[in-house]
Amino acid sequence: MLQERGRVVAIESDAIWVETTQSSACNGCSTKSSCGTGLLGDLFSSSTRIKVALNGFPSDKIHLDDIAVIGITENALTSSALLVYLVPLVSLVLAALIGDSLFAELGAVIGALIGLVVGALGVRWYSRYQSGNPTYTPVLLQIEPSQK
């Protein structure tokens, strides 16, 4: 189970909203302040809000700004990453080959673009189709009270 910590930003009767901050691997590096890569990582870091079911945790014991530990299985992450990267790439290559065999170089370029778009749309459709699948839903593992 892969775990991530995030701050509780909203509480509902059956779920909480957790804000996680995506950061680069440079956060643990001692030379981060003098490195261009570390500075760019800080510039482009962003936060994401995720709705997480309570899974039996009492909502009255959770407060805003508490730290929530959420998790997702390694299998779900691996299969999702493969899907997101491989489907557009394979469709790009296949469509480029088909375009090249039919219309030469210009057909390969246009086919590659069409293949990339079709692959990306296929991934988007599949992710929406799987949105209710509990395998791909993060679970609440632990609540750590805020230090206020």
Rank of each mutant, 00 (worst) to 15 (best):
M1T: 06
L2E: 00
L2Q: 03
Q3R: 13
Q3T: 15
E4N: 05
R5E: 12
G6D: 12
R7P: 01
R7Y: 04
R7N: 07
V8P: 10
V8N: 03
V9L: 02
V9M: 03
I11E: 00
I11V: 14
S13P: 01
S13R: 13
D14E: 09
D14P: 01
A15K: 09
A15R: 09
W17F: 03
W17Q: 06
E19M: 09
E19T: 05
S23A: 04
S24L: 11
S24D: 01
A25L: 07
C26T: 02
G28Y: 08
T31V: 14
S33I: 15
S34G: 14
S34E: 06
C35L: 09
G36Y: 08
G36E: 11
T37I: 15
T37D: 00
L39D: 02
L39R: 13
L40A: 14
L40S: 09
L40Y: 05
L40C: 08
G41Q: 11
F44W: 01
S45Y: 02
S45N: 13
S46A: 05
I50K: 10
A53C: 05
A53G: 07
A53N: 10
L54F: 08
N55C: 03
G56E: 10
F57T: 03
S59N: 04
S59L: 06
D60N: 15
D60E: 14
K61V: 09
K61T: 12
I62W: 05
H63I: 05
D65F: 13
D65P: 04
D65T: 13
D66L: 12
I67E: 07
I67Q: 03
I67D: 01
T73S: 15
E74P: 05
N75K: 14
N75A: 13
A76C: 14
S80M: 12
A81V: 15
L82A: 06
L83D: 02
V84Y: 08
V84C: 07
V90C: 02
S91E: 01
V93Y: 06
V93T: 04
V93K: 06
V93F: 13
A95E: 05
A95H: 06
A95W: 13
A95K: 04
L97C: 04
S101C: 00
L102N: 02
F103K: 00
F103L: 14
A104D: 02
A108W: 08
A108H: 06
G111D: 02
L113S: 03
G115Q: 00
G115H: 06
L116Q: 00
V117M: 02
V118T: 08
V118Q: 00
A120F: 13
L121W: 11
L121S: 04
G122T: 15
V123L: 09
R124E: 02
W125R: 13
W125P: 03
S127G: 14
S127T: 15
R128F: 10
R128D: 07
Q130Y: 09
G132D: 10
G132A: 12
G132R: 11
G132V: 11
N133Y: 05
N133H: 08
P134I: 12
P134G: 06
T135P: 00
T135Q: 15
Y136K: 09
Y136R: 04
T137E: 14
P138F: 08
P138R: 11
V139E: 10
V139P: 01
L140W: 12
L140K: 11
Q142C: 09
Q142W: 00
P145N: 02
P145A: 06
S146F: 09
Q147V: 07
Q147W: 00
Q147S: 08
K148H: 10
